[in-house]
Amino acid sequence: MDIKLKIWRQSGPKQAGFYEDHRVVADPHMSFLEMLDVLNEQLLEAGKDAVAFDHDCREGICGACSMVINGNPHGPRAGTTACQLHMREYHDGDEIVIEPWRAAAFPIIKDLVVDRSAFDRIQHAGGYVSVGTGSAPDANTIPIGKRESDEAFDYAACIGCGACVAACPNASAMLFVSSKVAHLSLLPQGKVERKVRVRKMVAAMDAEGFGGCTNHGECSAACPKSISVDAIALLNREYMFAGLARD
C-alpha cells in the first residue's frame, strides 16, 4: 500500500517547525512505528536526517510513544497506543498527518519527541506511600476487597504517555493526576496520606502550566488504557475534602 505522510519536523525546542511530505510503501501487517522505521531507513540511505520519535517497548506498556495521528493521540483505534496500531487500519493512497503532543507543559525537543518530565515532577510531589524498605507488615495483614482492589488497578493502569494532555483542548493533566491520586486513595495503604498527597500533586500540576479541566472527556477517549473520567470526579472529591480538613 502506498501511503502519503505529512510529518512535523522541528530541529530543536526554539526552532520553527514545519510539515514535510513523504511517501512510503507499507505492508498491512506492519505496525505504525515499523512504517516509520521504513521511512527512516529510506531517509538514512539517502543520506538525510531521519525523523526522531520516542518509542521503546513497542507493546503498549512503557508509554514512550507519543504522536498525534490525523488529529488523534495514538491514532484511530480506541485503547491502543501508536506502537500497537497496525497499517491494516489504513488504505492504499491514504494521507496520514503525524504531529507531536502539543502542550505548553510538554515542550518539543525534536521532531515528534517532547519533554514529559512535568509528569515525573508531579509524582515527586506526592505520588507515593511513605513506607521505607523493610517496614512493611505481612502482605495479607490488611484485607482489601476485590472490588476496591480492581478499581485501584484500573487507575494504576495509566502508562504516563501524556495522550490525555495532548487530546485536551486545554492541555489539562487532570486525567493523569487523578489516576495517580485515585489509585492510591482507594487502597488502605494510600489512605493515610491522601489529603496531603492530593493537595501537593494538584499544586505541582498547576505549577507545571497544564490547563484546567472543563469536562470535555477527550482525555478518556484518547487514553490507550481507557481510563475513565470518573477518576477526575474522584480527584475533585478528594481535593475538596482535603480542603475542608483540619490536618
Binding site: 505481612d138 502482605a139 482489601i144 485501584a152 489509585h183 487502597l187
Partner: peptide, 14 residues
C-alpha cells in the same frame, strides 16, 4: 510485603 505496602494492586480473592 513491601510491594503491597507501596500500593501495588495485586490480584485478590473476594
Amino acid at each position: 510485603d513491601q510491594c503491597v505496602a507501596q500500593g501495588v494492586p495485586f490480584a485478590r480473592e473476594y
